[in-house]
């Protein structure tokens, strides 16, 4: 990746984080931690990788993205708004009565959202259906889905993993946003996924582990997934929950809590400083 392109992606990701905080602050609720950990991957997909068109959100040959960890939609909404699907003004009324942007993604109401989600464990199944449809119709679009690490405790994830592998859905790429934290504590303490790589490998996946905040690593992994034949790929992305906002980083408490006015100011100042440094 060219340095200039990398810098652009980093700047966009910073803007995604700014709008994530803006949305959650104005909603007085929501999930900043996992949104911030997933922001770089979503930025990469929407601003570098996916064949999508904000002017034609439903075009049949578009690549698809399913945010299975639907509670992290503040980052998705930020990416979609910055991409041009809708105005960033919508983010300021996220979760308000009558707002377009719901607490969890609503494909009926929000342009660019490919699947309604929010009830954990269900997104990979839908992504499998999309990938299977492409195979059936000889379409060459690709399907991406993002899971939380805690979400991998849901049994349906593994039903879907079996299906994806059985039907050789090599047009399906999963990301696991492995930030190590869930509501009740660390993933290791709550349920323990232990060898997640081994689990996916035994389910027949190509498994790639990366630093989920490194755009070059994300690009390499996505390209490897695209060249992998006859089996689906999972990219296990090691991330930092709350990435980019110092007091939120690696803190369980910021899974599902909005910042107060003082915290909001600190967060925005930090992110704006990062953006300014990149623009300098």
């Amino acid at each position: 990746m060219e340095k200039s392109e990398l810098l652009e992606l980093q700047k966009t990701a910073c803007k995604v984080r700014l709008w994530t905080i803006e949305g959650v602050f104005n909603a007085k609720s929501g999930h900043p931690g996992g949104s911030l950990s997933a922001a770089d991957i979503m930025t990469y997909l929407y601003f570098k990788e996916m064949n999508v068109d904000p002017a034609d959100p439903k075009k049949p040959d578009r690549d698809r993205f399913v945010l299975s960890k639907g509670h992290c939609c503040p980052a998705l909404y930020a990416a979609l708004a910055l991409k041009g699907y809708f105005s960033t003004d919508e983010i300021k009324v996220l979760r308000h009565i009558g707002a377009m942007l719901q607490g969890h993604p609503d494909m009926k109401g929000t342009p660019g959202v490919d699947m309604s989600s929010g009830s954990l464990g269900q997104g990979v199944s839908a992504a499998c259906g999309m990938a299977l449809s492409a195979k059936l119709s000889s379409q060459d679009y690709r399907v991406y889905a993002m899971l939380g690490d805690g979400e991998c405790e849901e049994g349906q994830v593994w039903e879907a993993a079996m299906f994806a592998s059985h039907y050789k859905l090599d047009n399906l790429t999963l990301f696991v946003d492995f930030n190590g934290l869930q509501i009740d504590g660390t993933v290791a303490d709550v349920a323990g996924l232990s060898d997640l790589q081994g689990k996916f490998a035994s389910f027949g996946f190509e498994v790639i582990t990366i630093d989920g905040h490194d755009f070059c690593a994300i690009e390499d992994a996505v390209n490897k997934a695209k060249s992998t034949k006859d089996k689906p790929t999972v990219i296990i992305a090691n991330t930092i929950k709350g990435k980019g906002v110092s007091f939120m980083e690696n803190q369980v408490g910021w899974h599902g809590k909005a910042p107060n006015a003082d915290q909001y100011k600190i967060a925005m100042d930090e992110l704006n400083a990062q953006l300014k440094a990149m623009e300098a």
């Binding site: 699947m115 349906q156 039903e159 079996m162 299906f163």
Partner: peptide, 22 residues
């Protein structure tokens, strides 16, 4: 497509197929 003994996934796969026009 046989989904095996995994009804939850079957319904989700059906949902995904429907989003793509099947």
């Amino acid at each position: 497509f046989d989904c095996g003994i995994a009804e939850g996934n079957m319904i989700g796969v059906a949902a995904g197929l429907a989003t793509a026009g099947k």
